[in-house]
Design a protein around this nucleic acid. Structure first.
Lengths: 346, 346
DNA sequence: CCACATGTTGTTATCGATAACAAGCCTGAT
DNA sequence: ATCAGGCTTGTTATCGATAACAACATGTGG
């Protein structure tokens, strides 16, 4: 029944109805309207009905700027992401939006133009200027970055890549475990050792996985081959694959992301090395295509939705009770075995 | 030199400095501070310097809620996306954020839980309640959807998938041309005809590509094979591939997205049909992996960044001049030839 | 029947910025 | 010299909601 009645203001332009208009229409005070719309308990149900009817008839929508100004609460959280169209960033962003929405929060998005601390701080500052009540960082943050720390001290912040800053929450997948899972799977298949193509060192995701890989090898008493580095892109995986394919004893490779893994597999094919017959490959992320490229990729799936929901949950707790101390929570990843890994045939 | 000075308010809690605090510190009026921060021309440079110094010293950040309330401008635009971690949605979202940021606008993100008009309207309503000044719809909108139309009439809205509603701008890739490009490429390779795996009919992207495909075939006087449908997912491409692989005369397939294309290629492989030797496949999107899965995918690249920038540009024009009529702009896609297409081998 | 707690509603002040107007000063043309 | 008009700055009212407080009604136990 939304008729969307509009008034004329002093200058003659149309204007959306305000709370005062609703109050007048329902024959109550603005405060009562406010109480009804905020679900305050102490309002008689007859009054409540009447107000709601007026809200409906006038097509009233609340002015969030006014609410924010007077209450000091914007009910908005911010997300800082990188401007890459990668699977994980986008999965986390959607997870955050969904969890925030359920809690009645809006989401502001801000991209960091690079991993430079200044760029990340700039992205956070933009959110700060929007008066977000909390920030989810979907980017790695070097510890001890002053500009970032300053904002994190004032605005509840949670990192989801495992970066541990002094003032922020941490909700992260246990990347050490990710590295270990992948590596142990390959060792169990009988491979003498496992090579590793890591992501950039700026990412804790990256160093965590490498550490897990190294630990698994050490524990099994295997030789630890030299580490390769990529930048998460398929192209960098391809370049690394061109190297690995020339090393005859490289029979098993743990690649730090599915996209790099596909690049590596392509390079191996071009060099005439079959996957998994000659080389077994494990990726990380379980992107949608992992099961459908050839060969179907064995990978470590990361529960991005769960991570995002947890991040928001922690953020809201910190927002409601700023005195509660920052915490650190780990989430489990799981190995998905497909066709890119096979027993050592050496 | 941001010392971030904070005052105590009546209730004894810390509070960020306000414009009045800056004004007092600089020995000017609040209005002058406002003028300096809004880059008004008529301020003496000495005064400007003094104000900026005070802003810096006090660590002042503007309260956007107050600005929005008093000026009636939120300098925020909204984006409606689907909660899928797909390449195109995320590429467009980042493009919008980047363009908006350059224009001094913040971006609110809102996901539509489904393609149901009610769900899309709900996502738009959430943005409306945040008082966004414009909306970019990265979802298909059925024409004549009242709830959507009502909001689009009030808030400048641009669709980027080609959906033409009465009140919204349209910035879109010419999908008819996409279909034609892909189909003609395959015909030029000598294939007698071209099969098509389309996306869901709700998407104009989808129907547009199908129309271009059909037109190209008709123009060449070829038989038009029955149309197959997927839902953009690799799995649906796989299912369609299981069908196509059983049809001996299907030598060329135009698939409406890269992800579906990889699913289809996988199914073809499983059925023993080689790509491109037995079947040529063309996708759409040019996702990052297109060049790195096997075989490297021939595909139609879409300029998502350009689309997003144009969308924002149009939106800002409508915001600045609400009387300007909605327009419709097309952007060109381009064929990227890789290894999944080959001449017809009889 | 009174004192006091509780429930319901209204009043007033306030959040922090900007628009609209006003006022003083300086310049240059008449 | 004088006045129009532009530049610079300040004053006041206002945006729309909520917090804090006040006021009144109602109910309950002594």
């Amino acid at each position: 029944m939304t008729t969307n009645t509009r008034r004329l203001d002093a200058s003659g332009r149309t204007r959306s109805p305000s709370m005062a208009d609703v109050a007048h229409h329902a024959g109550v005070s603005a405060q009562t309207v406010s109480r009804v719309l905020s679900d305050h308990p102490n309002v008689q149900s007859a009054t409540r009905e009447r107000v709601l009817r007026s809200v409906d008839q006038l097509g009233y929508r609340m002015n969030s700027a006014a609410r924010a100004l007077s209450s000091g609460r914007t009910r908005t959280i911010g997300v800082v992401v990188l401007p890459t169209a990668d699977y994980s960033g986008s999965a986390v962003t959607h997870g955050v939006e969904s969890a925030a929405r359920r809690a009645g929060y809006a989401v502001n998005i801000s991209t960091a133009s690079s991993l430079d601390p200044a760029a990340i701080a700039a992205a956070m500052t933009r959110l700060d200027e929007q008066s977000v009540e909390g920030i989810v960082l979907v980017v790695p943050v070097p510890t001890g970055t002053d500009a970032v720390e300053t904002i994190a001290r004032r605005i509840p912040t949670v990192t989801i890549d495992g970066s541990r800053t002094v003032s922020s929450e941490v909700v992260a997948i246990d990347q050490f475990e990710v590295g270990r899972l992948a590596t142990e799977h390959l060792l169990e298949l009988g491979h003498p050792t496992v090579w590793h193509l890591a992501g950039p060192d700026e990412w804790l995701d990256s160093t965590g996985r490498a550490a897990g890989w190294r630990a698994a090898l050490a524990e099994a008493g295997r030789e630890i081959p030299p580490l390769l580095h990529g930048d998460w892109s398929p192209e960098s995986g391809y370049q690394a694959g061109l190297l690995l394919g020339r090393i005859p004893e490289a029979s098993a490779v743990f690649v730090a992301s599915d996209e790099m893994a596909f690049g590596a597999i392509r390079a191996l094919h071009e060099l005439g090395r079959r996957v998994p017959d000659d080389v077994s490959v494990v990726g990380v992320d379980d992107i949608a295509l992992a099961a459908y490229c050839s060969p179907a990729l064995t990978t470590v799936a990361q529960p991005f939705g769960e991570i995002a929901a947890l991040a928001v949950e922690h953020l809201l707790r910190r927002i409601d009770d700023p005195s509660s101390p920052p915490t650190s929570t780990d989430v489990e990843a799981s190995l998905v075995i497909r066709a890119s890994t096979a027993p050592f045939a050496g």
